[in-house]
């Protein structure tokens, strides 16, 4: 099983193959298509991430002490962003998710999305994933 850091490096390597923003965005949109989708019944207001102009739902479940995320968004770019995060963080022990560094976002050329005032809510997404991890970590203790 790969660690979060290893997956992040893999994602950074993938994005390095592209020279311009257009291709990077296209790749991100492509990644959005492989996002493990949240079940319809979990698309509730409680699972909606606040602070995004588009809708993003995230659901988390423990499987063998590892946290598995499923998600969806009504906007394609947002779906790509959450797909990158889910790929990096899903199927990992909650503790590793809590401790994970997120600077890889910077390295894949999405730095502008990291601003907390940006309407896409990338910061809120990261916070939400980590919150789930904190909640489940407490359960495991």
């Amino acid at each position: 099983m790969k660690t979060i850091k290893e997956i992040q490096e893999e994602i950074v390597d993938e994005f390095e193959m592209f020279d311009d923003w257009m291709q990077r965005y296209e790749h991100m949109i492509e990644l959005g298509k492989s996002l493990p989708l949240i079940e319809e019944k979990y698309k509730t207001d409680d699972n909606l991430i606040k602070g995004c102009q588009s809708k993003v739902w995230v659901h988390a479940e423990l499987e063998d002490d590892r946290l598995v995320f499923t998600s969806d968004s009504d906007a394609i770019i947002t779906k790509g962003i959450i797909a990158i995060l889910v790929r990096a963080f899903s199927n990992q022990p909650p503790k590793a998710i809590i401790e994970a560094d997120t600077t890889f976002i910077d390295e894949i050329g999405l730095k502008e999305h990291l601003s907390p005032t940006r309407a896409n809510g990338l910061v809120s997404m990261i916070k939400q994933l980590k919150m789930y991890a904190v909640a489940y970590q407490t359960q495991l203790n």
Partner: peptide, 21 residues
């Protein structure tokens, strides 16, 4: 059914300022 946010984000990359939402 393209989300307005997606269009706004892409055209911003091309130097165009519009409002979405």
């Amino acid at each position: 059914d393209i989300h307005p946010y997606d269009i706004g984000t892409i055209i911003d990359k091309l130097g165009i300022a519009v409002r979405t939402g």
